[in-house]
C-alpha cells in the first residue's frame, strides 16, 4: 500500500477535497459550542506516553475517558495526530468513529484486526485509515531521540452518522462537518530513549 504516494477520495463528497483538506477543519473549531474533558487512566497531558502505546512495546491503543459531553451528543469520533510530522502535517496515528454517544471512553487495546469485534458498549464503532493507510492504531515512533506531541482530539457529534470504515482524516472531517457540538482533547508526548534500544540478548 502506498498511501503516502497517492491520495484517495471517497465517492460521497469527492471533488477538490484534497485541496480543501486544510480549510475544512477551520469551521469545525468555530462551530464547536462546548469543550469537555478528555483524560486517560494511564496517560497525562504533557507527559510521556507509556512505552506500550508505541512500537517500543505492544503498540496497543491507549485508554481514553471523557466527561462533560454537551447535551445532545449522539456520537463520538476520535483522531490521534502528530502536528509535527507528515507532509503536509498532521501525521495521523489513529482514527475511530461511529462511537455511540453513550460511551464514556475507550478501553485499552481496540482491535487492529477488523474481523475482531469492538469491546462492549462500542458496537458500531469503526476505524479510519491512518497515515499508513491502515484502519488501526499505530503509536508513536518519532525519529531518533526527538520528542513529538500526540494530540488525541475527541469530537462530540449531534447525529448518528453511519459512516463507512476506512475514511481518511480529511474524509472524516468533511463527513462530520456541521455536526460537531463539542470538542475535547489531551496531548501527551513520546520520545524513543536510547536506553529503550538496549535489548536483552
Amino acid at each position: 500500500m502506498s498511501a503516502a504516494a497517492s491520495s484517495r477520495t471517497q465517492m460521497s463528497a469527492r471533488s477538490a477535497l484534497c485541496a480543501l483538506a486544510f480549510t475544512v477543519c477551520l469551521p469545525l473549531a468555530a462551530e464547536a459550542q462546548a469543550t469537555f474533558v478528555v483524560e486517560s487512566p494511564t496517560m497525562r497531558a504533557g507527559e510521556m506516553m507509556p512505552r506500550d502505546y508505541s512500537p517500543d512495546g505492544r503498540n496497543v491503543s491507549p485508554p481514553l475517558a471523557w466527561r462533560g459531553l454537551p447535551d445532545g451528543t449522539r456520537q463520538i469520533a476520535v483522531i490521534c495526530q502528530d502536528h509535527g510530522a507528515g507532509n503536509p502535517p498532521p501525521w495521523v496515528h489513529w482514527i475511530i468513529y461511529n462511537i455511540p454517544g453513550s460511551a464514556t471512553g475507550l478501553p485499552e487495546g481496540i482491535p487492529f484486526d477488523e474481523s475482531r469485534p469492538m469491546p462492549p458498549g462500542l458496537e458500531g464503532a469503526v476505524q479510519g485509515a491512518n497515515g499508513w493507510g491502515m484502519p488501526m492504531y499505530r503509536g508513536p515512533a518519532p525519529p531518533g531521540t526527538s520528542l513529538h506531541h500526540y494530540h488525541f482530539a475527541v469530537f462530540a457529534l449531534d447525529a448518528e452518522l453511519d459512516l463507512p470504515p476506512g475514511l481518511t482524516r480529511d474524509e472524516l472531517l468533511e463527513a462530520i462537518d456541521g455536526h460537531v457540538i463539542g470538542l475535547g482533547s489531551m496531548t501527551p508526548h513520546y520520545r524513543r530513549h536510547p536506553e529503550n534500544q538496549e535489548i536483552d540478548p
Binding site: M1, S2, A3, R8, D113, E114, S115, G128, A129, G133, M134, P135, P165, G166, L167, T168
Partner: peptide, 13 residues
C-alpha cells in the same frame, strides 16, 4: 493490489 484503507494487505481478513 492496494486495499483502499480497508485493512492490511495480508492476513486472514
Amino acid at each position: 493490489m492496494g486495499t483502499y484503507g480497508r485493512g492490511r494487505n495480508w492476513g486472514s481478513a
